[in-house]
Simulated assay, not measured.
Amino acid sequence: MTDDVPPLVLDIDGTLTDSDGRLDPRVFRYLPTWEAPVVLATGKAFPYPVSLSHYLGIGKNVIAENGGVVLADGTVSYQGDTDRAAAAAAEFVERGGDLGWPAFDDANEWRRTEIAANRSADEELLRTVAAEYGLEVVDTGYAYHVKTPGVEKGAGLTSVAETLGLDPEAFVAVGDSVNDVSTFRAAGRSYAVANADAPARAAADIVVERTYFDGTAAVLDSLVSE
Rank of each mutant, 00 (worst) to 15 (best):
1 M>W: 06
1 M>K: 10
6 P>N: 02
6 P>E: 04
6 P>R: 00
7 P>S: 06
9 V>Q: 01
10 L>H: 03
11 D>G: 13
13 D>T: 02
14 G>Y: 10
15 T>V: 10
16 L>N: 05
19 S>L: 05
20 D>L: 12
21 G>H: 03
21 G>W: 04
23 L>F: 06
23 L>T: 09
23 L>V: 10
25 P>K: 05
28 F>D: 00
30 Y>I: 04
35 E>S: 14
40 L>W: 12
41 A>H: 11
41 A>P: 05
41 A>N: 13
43 G>V: 05
44 K>M: 11
48 Y>D: 02
48 Y>I: 09
49 P>D: 05
49 P>I: 06
49 P>G: 05
51 S>F: 09
52 L>C: 01
52 L>A: 01
55 Y>M: 07
56 L>P: 00
57 G>W: 04
59 G>L: 02
60 K>I: 15
62 V>A: 04
63 I>P: 08
64 A>D: 11
64 A>S: 15
67 G>V: 09
67 G>S: 06
69 V>N: 05
70 V>T: 15
74 G>Q: 03
74 G>Y: 08
74 G>T: 08
74 G>S: 10
75 T>E: 13
76 V>Y: 06
77 S>G: 10
77 S>M: 11
79 Q>M: 08
80 G>H: 13
80 G>S: 08
80 G>R: 15
83 D>S: 08
87 A>C: 03
87 A>V: 04
88 A>G: 07
90 A>D: 14
92 F>W: 13
95 R>C: 08
95 R>S: 11
96 G>Y: 13
98 D>H: 13
100 G>K: 00
103 A>P: 09
103 A>F: 08
106 D>Q: 07
117 A>Q: 12
118 N>H: 15
119 R>K: 14
119 R>N: 03
123 E>N: 05
123 E>M: 01
124 E>S: 12
125 L>P: 00
126 L>K: 02
126 L>M: 09
126 L>C: 14
130 A>Q: 13
130 A>L: 09
130 A>H: 06
132 E>P: 13
132 E>G: 13
134 G>V: 09
134 G>A: 07
134 G>Q: 09
136 E>P: 00
140 T>C: 04
141 G>V: 11
146 V>E: 00
149 P>G: 14
150 G>C: 13
151 V>N: 04
151 V>W: 00
152 E>G: 00
153 K>D: 05
155 A>I: 14
157 L>D: 14
158 T>E: 15
159 S>I: 00
159 S>F: 13
160 V>K: 01
161 A>I: 00
162 E>I: 02
162 E>N: 07
165 G>R: 06
165 G>H: 10
166 L>Y: 10
166 L>Q: 14
166 L>N: 03
168 P>H: 07
169 E>V: 09
170 A>N: 11
172 V>E: 03
172 V>D: 03
175 G>S: 11
176 D>H: 03
177 S>E: 02
179 N>G: 09
181 V>H: 11
186 A>S: 14
188 G>K: 04
190 S>D: 10
191 Y>T: 05
191 Y>N: 02
197 D>V: 13
198 A>P: 00
200 A>C: 10
202 A>P: 07
203 A>C: 05
205 D>T: 12
206 I>Y: 13
207 V>R: 14
207 V>W: 01
212 Y>N: 06
214 D>Y: 12
214 D>V: 01
215 G>L: 08
215 G>A: 11
216 T>L: 07
217 A>C: 08
218 A>Q: 15
218 A>H: 11
220 L>N: 08
223 L>D: 02
226 E>H: 15
